[in-house]
Nucleic acid binder design. Sequence first.
DNA 1: CTTTCGATTGCCT
DNA 2: GGCAATCGAAAGG
Length: 179
Amino acid sequence: MIKREYNNRIIWGVIVETEAYAELEPACHGFKSRTAKNETLFGEPGRLYVYLTYGIHHCVNIVTEKKGWASGVLLRAIAMPNEHHRVAAGPGLLAKRFGLNRNHDNSLISVENGIWLRKSSADTKMSPIIQTTRIGISQAKNLPWRWYMKNSRSVSKRALGDRSPKPSEAWSPSSKEGP
DNA sequence: CTTTCGATTGCCT
DNA sequence: GGCAATCGAAAGG
């Protein structure tokens, strides 16, 4: 589960949908270049990479892998048992509900910073976990790097309609190499 | 410099 | 199903 303290309150939920992004594939923000904007993605694991998308919504990632290698896990949906099942059922919605924005970019995940992770029996309650392709991207659509809890009602709306990638959208690793 | 478009959401037909 | 909202990178001239 993920926990968050802000406005003098602690809220929590189970992460029920994620996607992985890494430097070796073109959908990743760190694929083309390393800039001030995406620097966090190249930084040390355990920090948040938060960016604005569509000029309106924020997307929250947890940086993974080793320092110097752009990689992260996008949090796409959180189930909050004590609230309406859709309040955090999407990347933008969960960022909003958990009060996270660009100011939290590069923040270390810790109790001191008001955002942290814990294991819980609630985490496995909605299994099995389905692995499939990512959503809302235009490149490397064939990579099966999305995971979600099959039995959760809080999985993002668009995640429900799966489709297999067309051959023209297929992508396979070429020059870039992993860590 | 100008134009395009995105790791989305919500409202409309 | 379609599309506006709304901003800033990235791409194009």
